[in-house]
């Protein structure tokens, strides 16, 4: 797993909370920093892709492991 600056555990949360929490976390970070997000909502996979596309942040990693979804979001 690559390095990250901050972690957000959104496990157990459903749409749209993982996105909203991620947005909030990114708000407190500076450009270039990386947020590691953990989620259990399967919808989050597509949603984080769409979020990145529309907000100028970069989704550098997205993978599933044992029913959990892991994302790396680089702040744009």
């Amino acid at each position: 797993m690559a390095d990250f600056d901050q972690e957000l555990d959104a496990s157990g949360l459903n749409c749209p909370l993982p996105i909203l929490r991620a947005k909030k976390a990114l708000g407190g970070m500076s450009a270039g920093q990386v947020l590691h997000i953990i989620a259990t909502d399967p919808g989050a996979v597509k949603d984080f892709e769409a979020f990145a596309k529309q907000t100028g942040n970069e989704l550098t990693e997205s993978h599933e492991d044992g029913g959990k979804f892991y994302f790396l979001m680089k702040k744009g």
Partner: peptide, 8 residues
Amino acid sequence: ASTAAALG
């Protein structure tokens, strides 16, 4: 509304 706001 909350999601759209998060998307800018």
